[in-house]
Design a protein around this nucleic acid. Sequence first.
DNA 1: TCTGAAACGCACTGCCC
DNA 2: GGGCAGTGCGTTTCAGA
Lengths: 153, 153
Amino acid sequence: MERLDEIDLRILRILQEDSKKTTKEIAQTLCLTATPVYERIRRLEKGGYIKKYVALLSKNRINRPVTAICMVSLRYHDEGFIDKFERQIKELAEVQECYHMAGKVDFFLKINLANLEDYHDFVRLKLSKIENIGVLESYFVLKEILHTTEYYI
Amino acid sequence: MERLDEIDLRILRILQEDSKKTTKEIAQTLCLTATPVYERIRRLEKGGYIKKYVALLSKNRINRPVTAICMVSLRYHDEGFIDKFERQIKELAEVQECYHMAGKVDFFLKINLANLEDYHDFVRLKLSKIENIGVLESYFVLKEILHTTEYYI
DNA sequence: TCTGAAACGCACTGCCC
DNA sequence: GGGCAGTGCGTTTCAGA
């Protein structure tokens, strides 16, 4: 699949915001009929522009109100150590995001838990069990100002 | 709505992973019929457990491959200044996440853009235009190890 | 690439257990 | 709280322009 035209972008913007919108509704906003909208969405899915459709939960309602940001630096930086760290992080279901960074901090992690005690246990029983961690700094979120899955397109 | 039982949790886990699953399919996995599954999903929506349904896009496909983490500290910390900063950050469509933190860093921001030059412009023309910023440190993502919208429940 | 019509399956309701 | 049957609507396909 090649370039996206303005109609494709408008469809993506709508679906990023609410994937339950029907093709009919989207068609009306775009002054089209359902068929072309349907076909475009299929193309966007097949072309990998749309990765998946998900339900977003309320972290307060499901009792995961505590968000921590954890900055990790490794002791040794051989290829093998970095790959191994990655594999071990992916095993930890509490981790929502993990990025390998440029700069003096190697990794950023975002972790969601029920309370601070669970975070204590998480660090003590899981994170610190990963070998080769040099520095580990934790920050806690006081308030979520903004958290969206949408990209500005 | 009161407590969630194991069936509710299983429904939430499924919808977090793929919200296009039909009630029929979910019913089969849970050894139920469509009706109770349908009613439970409605209750989870009304109860605020499910916030919204969205499409997740591929940031590479839509040309937003650069992710930056930006740490901001304010110069003054009066209530008014913090609220004003929050309001101004929410105006910036490039910012995907923003957290008010405990500790010496006041805010974490995650920003997605097409390239480093756009980040340069973003900082120069938008972020630094916000008054009262004391320290501003930028980190760049080399590799996204893990990025999910799912909570471990 | 779009329109319009037609077929199919699912979402949704009401009734029963 | 779950199962079953019916209806309307959205998804999906196809012919035509």
